[in-house]
Write a protein that binds this DNA or RNA. Structure first.
Length: 472
RNA sequence: GGUGGGGUGGCCGAGAGGCGAGGCAACGGACUGCAAAUCCGUGCACACGGGUUCGAAUCCCGUUCCCACCUCCA
């Protein structure tokens, strides 16, 4: 069984061969922190979280770097509109992104560098590009420095485009450029720009252009050549194309794999900052538990379009509860006490699905099939098979970052002491109800059940007696 | 104009020449005092038209519709 990933640069699914045996280096584009995160941002991070976890599960030591682009045109514009320092706005939204990532259980990267902390590295890269004849100071005296796309024959290769076939950008400002497609590595300081957004450089004071920060930072932390570069599909062009061009033109091998996640659409249309049809993760978390949101966002293949509909979260919730119900029932049967330890397993079919370019939907099918087998075993009282299914379900859920038993997802449950007290109280009610039932006093029995239900305690009658759980 | 991805049962969503994907919803049954949960069963799914093949959702040709990117985008 071989680990295979889709590589956008070659447009093929091919075997993953790490540069260093047993290690994997992953860089994926985080946010330009110019506004609240929307679901698309989170889906992207989740896709690469699934990738990270599967690499780890497969035994790789993974180094993950995700950038924060904390200086760019939009940040400056919005800060000015807001009458707020740009760095305050950027940091505010950076934290909003962190919160969104955290709430969905997205693993922290190994490191998360900020663009503004890497100006010297960017200068070095620009210098190299100028020396190699792939960049030039603006032909006017703007202080800009541009990448010369015509000087780099491979330009367009990531997205399989030919420069001459591209539609000319209607709003391209050709001032000072040799070719309208040349992009800014460095933007000269202009009157009116904040003084705090100004750094000295050999080409005059200014600030970095978009694209450059990623090249500079990935090289610093992962080296001139690394395993995987990721990001949203919409970043392929121009962002990743430009990144690849400027890094390779500087003599770097750069990324071995380019992985791009699909967009999230809202009723068929791409969610986009510019259109404004976005859903805030916070809004989604008001509609469903974090685990359910994670399940929903992660259930489709990462390269597929994910279309959000109003019923999506409820459906995901039902699927999650099915898994949880089995885990709870199995746990109670296998480990009647509170504490237990386990070593999760993963069926071959699950691993095969994940190895095949992270086929999460197929992997989830294995998980659900295992849940059904486990439920059947529970009904049959086959403890060995229950345990087998239990360990497999937990192992698979762990690999996907969706283990309901993980304290990360604890919701209504309070401290162990509080839960213990609640258990005593509820059990007293259940005993009273058992007595009523023995007397076939259904009115009394149902009254107790309704009372508990009103308090958020769900009662379930099983062959072994009544059990309870908190309403999810 | 260029580049790429798609149209799968009521909905979501995998698969990619023969073998049940899976989930949600619905209906029928089992279990249950009734529920809930669970299990079993049901749906003649592959945009359309041709073709190749013993066999096509999957390959080929044509048609059609949708989406994304082409310097703000995860």
């Amino acid at each position: 069984m071989t680990l295979r990933f889709h590589d956008s640069a070659t447009a093929t699914v091919r075997d993953f061969v790490p540069l260093q045996k047993g290690k994997a280096s992953l860089y994926y584009c985080g946010a330009t922190v110019q506004g609240e995160p929307h679901i698309g941002h989170v889906r992207s991070a989740l896709a690469f979280d699934q990738l990270t976890r599967w690499l780890q599960t497969s035994g790789y030591e993974v180094t993950v770097v995700r950038n924060v682009t904390d200086i760019d045109d939009k940040i400056l514009v919005k800060a000015a509109e807001n009458n707020e320092p740009w760095w305050a706005l950027a940091y505010r939204f950076e934290q909003a992104f962190e919160n969104a990532y955290d709430s969905l259980g997205i693993l922290k990267p190994t490191y998360e560098p900020r663009a503004t902390g890497h100006i010297p590295e960017m200068h070095a890269l620009i210098q190299t590009l100028i020396e190699r004849g792939h960049a030039y100071p603006a032909l006017d005296d703007s202080g800009d420095v541009y990448f010369d796309v015509r000087s780099w024959k491979a330009y367009g290769s990531l997205t399989h485009q030919n420069i001459d076939d591209m539609q000319a950008a209607p709003d391209a400002d050709p001032r000072g450029k040799r070719d309208p497609r040349d992009f800014a590595l460095w933007k000269g300081h202009k009157d009116g720009d904040p003084e705090t957004a100004k750094w000295e450089s050999p080409w005059g004071a200014g600030r970095p252009g978009w694209h450059l920060e990623c090249s500079a930072m990935v090289t610093k932390y992962l080296g001139t050549e690394f395993d995987i570069h990721g990001g949203g599909l919409d970043l392929r062009f121009p962002h990743h194309e430009n990144e690849m061009a400027q890094s390779q033109a500087a003599g770097h091998g750069f990324a071995n794999f380019w992985m791009h996640n699909g967009m999230v659409t809202y009723q068929g249309e791409k969610m986009s900052k510019s259109i404004g049809n976005t859903i805030n993760p916070r809004e989604m978390l008001e509609l469903a538990r974090p685990l359910v949101v994670r399940y929903y966002l992660g259930q489709a293949h990462y390269r597929s379009v994910l279309d959000y509909r109003p019923t999506s979260l409820a459906e995901a919730g039902a699927a999650v509860e099915r898994i949880e119900t089995f885990i709870e029932a199995a746990r109670k049967q296998l480990f009647p006490g509170n504490g237990f330890g386990y070593i999760g397993t993963r069926p071959e079919a699950f691993a095969a699905a994940m190895d095949d370019d992270l086929n999460v939907p197929a992997a989830l099918a294995v998980l659900h099939e295992t849940v059904r087998a486990g439920n059947t075993a529970l009904a049959a009282g086959d403890a060995d098979r229950v345990q087998e299914a239990f360990l497999a379900v937990l192992g698979m859920a762990d690999a996907l970052g969706m283990n309901p038993l993980d304290e990360k997802w604890a919701t209504a449950a309070g401290s162990p002491a509080a839960l213990g007290a609640l258990d005593v109280l509820v059990k007293a009610q259940l005993e009273a109800r058992a007595l009523a039932r023995a007397e076939k006093n259904w009115a009394e029995s149902d009254k107790i059940r309704d009372l508990l239900a009103a308090a958020g305690v769900v009662v379930a009658d099983t062959a072994a007696g009544a059990t309870w759980s908190l309403q999810k």
